[in-house]
Design a protein around this nucleic acid. Structure first.
Lengths: 143, 143
DNA sequence: CTTATAAGTGAAAAACATTTTCAATTAAGT
DNA sequence: ACTTAATTGAAAATGTTTTTCACTTATAAG
């Protein structure tokens, strides 16, 4: 179940952050978007409800929400980051290289591999990034 | 076995590209570096052998080698790309978030997962990105 | 309800990595 | 050697993200 804007706002203030109109506006957009959005795209949408907001504030708010684990960030090849509401817990992505749509999935079964790598390399492994790329149903016909 | 500079150079000209001093210099650095290097870092090293080279040329050469599949590119969280000589075939990375060092590994066993996802989502999956992050042996003590 | 103040804001500038442009240079085939 | 299309490098353009700093405001205390 996706968290509501109210829930996120209240978590924010519990953590000692102020609840400004700008932050509410950013949270609203994130909560009401199914897609992964880049800061610039989010900024456009937020402006509809709050025309005076600055792009900087959007960046800052997204970073903050990300640090609190409330939204999730995906890096897409050098271009820009995208953010989306964090589904509860650990998950991964399936990205369409044609249209950029992102599907989520949750199970990955990497513990065994992780443990072996940890032993072999001496790394203390703290996380992983798993992402499949391909073409979504809609983009399979075309050139 | 890692390909030699000669081998790469000859592949380049086979593909109809000119063999310039600048390209040779970039190839030499890539072949002689064990690490994954960002274009700027590569540029610094190439300048030792070829002081007049431009950063643009380094970018262009890396892009070209990458398109030919001769070197491999890693995206590291929004910052910059890094390049390294392509080990033969499929492989993945283990990145230290402290010092940025990258270790490679080759086996990932994702076929089963991939097939299931493909069925569930309708995606035609063409590849995947698997990367572990953590702290390497040297960076585990510090703050 | 005021007040104090630390947190938050936005415009502009800085900081980056990367790409584009374009005139000058050069590798490689004839 | 000659020709020419590919390549180069400086500078400018682009695009994203961060920093700076003077101004504003949410929130807690009185």
């Amino acid at each position: 179940m996706r968290p509501s804007a109210k829930k996120i706002a209240s978590l924010l203030s519990q953590k000692g952050h102020k609840l400004t109109a700008q932050r509410r506006a950013v949270i609203d957009v994130v909560v009401n978007s199914r897609e992964h959005l880049a800061p610039a795209a989010l900024y456009e949408r937020v402006r509809r409800a709050h025309p005076a907001i600055g792009l900087v504030t959007v960046y800052r708010t997204l970073e903050m929400l990300h640090e609190l684990g409330l939204i999730c960030r995906v890096h897409r090849g050098g271009k820009s980051r995208t953010y989306t509401l964090a589904p509860s817990g650990h998950h991964h992505h399936l990205v369409c290289t044609e249209c950029g749509i992102v599907a989520d999935f949750t199970d990955c079964d990497l513990e065994v591999l992780q443990q072996r790598l940890s032993q072999e390399t001496g790394f203390k492994i703290e996380g992983h990034l798993l992402q499949f790329v391909g073409h979504c149903r809609n983009c399979q016909g075309g050139t």
